[in-house]
Amino acid sequence: MLTSKVAKRYAQGLLDFTKESGQTDAVFAEMKDVVKLMSESKDLNKFFLTPYIDANKKTEVANEIFKSFSPVSQNLIRLIIKNGRESQLKNVAQQFINKVEDINGIQRITLTTATQLSNENIEQILKSTNLVNASANFDIKVNVNPAILGGYILRVGDQQIDASVKSQLNKIKKDFQLN
């Protein structure tokens, strides 16, 4: 998914500010909460995306939802709403998380499988490839997608290994069509 320039700019501004004030770790945890909340609550997303609800009402709701957050995070959320960018709130939070993880040298790994795997199997997959730096810290997200039929799709940063049965079948199909 492409992230907008708006989200990247807000995230960079927040990162610069938190570095100066020494609040990066606290805001990092709060931005993780924002992403989690926005991912889990369809109603909250609909509320923020509704154009006929004015910014003042959205700000009141956001103040109540995020009242336990630090003033820095609260001010960012209010600023985003005031500027009419509430549709980008989750993206801004995710971009901030990504930037902090990049600074800390954390690799983001996404593993998509057809069925749920054990931790041992996940470790074997990670060890079998040279994309994963064994000495680095990593944040792994495991997705289950039965549509890939079997195998796995491993994405590390901007590199991907597609060892899924579906892609293998598609490759065979394409070869048959060419011959």
Rank of each mutant, 00 (worst) to 15 (best):
R85P: 05
K46E: 14
K32V: 03
V34G: 00
F69E: 02
N56F: 14
T59E: 07
F69I: 02
L49H: 12
N91A: 15
S70I: 06
D33R: 04
K67H: 13
S73C: 10
L44T: 12
D33Q: 08
V35E: 04
I80P: 07
S39I: 00
I81L: 08
D43A: 14
N45F: 02
K32W: 01
E64S: 14
K32P: 00
S41K: 14
A93V: 05
K36N: 05
S39Q: 13
K67C: 08
S73D: 11
N83D: 11
F69W: 03
D43F: 08
K58V: 11
A93E: 00
L49Q: 15
V61C: 05
F66S: 02
I81W: 05
T50P: 07
V34T: 07
Q88E: 12
S68M: 02
K82C: 08
N45E: 06
P51Y: 11
V92H: 05
D54G: 12
L89Y: 03
D54V: 10
N45V: 06
L37T: 15
S73L: 08
K90S: 09
K58Y: 08
G84C: 06
L76M: 13
L76Q: 11
V92T: 09
N63T: 10
P51L: 02
V72N: 09
E40P: 02
S68A: 10
I65P: 00
Q88G: 00
E86F: 03
K42W: 01
Q88P: 01
D43W: 07
V35A: 10
M38Q: 10
S39P: 09
K32F: 01
P51F: 08
D43P: 04
I77V: 10
D54L: 07
M38L: 15
V35K: 12
K82Q: 14
E40F: 05
E60I: 14
R78G: 11
S70G: 08
V35C: 11
S70W: 03
N91F: 04
Y52S: 14
K42H: 10
K90D: 04
K67W: 01
K42D: 10
R85N: 09
F69C: 02
K36Q: 06
T59P: 02
E64Q: 14
P51E: 05
T59H: 01
S70M: 05
F47W: 10
A93F: 01
I80C: 06
K90I: 02
K57A: 13
K82R: 14
E64D: 13
A55T: 15
L89S: 03
N91E: 15
N56R: 15
S73Q: 11
F47A: 09
F69M: 03
K32S: 04
K58R: 12
N63P: 04
S73W: 01
T50W: 12
E64I: 10
I53L: 13
S87Y: 00
I53D: 11
F69A: 01
P51Q: 11
V61S: 02
L37M: 14
S68F: 09
P71H: 11
K82D: 14
S68L: 05
F48H: 05
K46Y: 13
P71M: 09
E86W: 01
Q74K: 15
A62I: 07
V92A: 08
E60S: 12
I77C: 00
K90G: 05
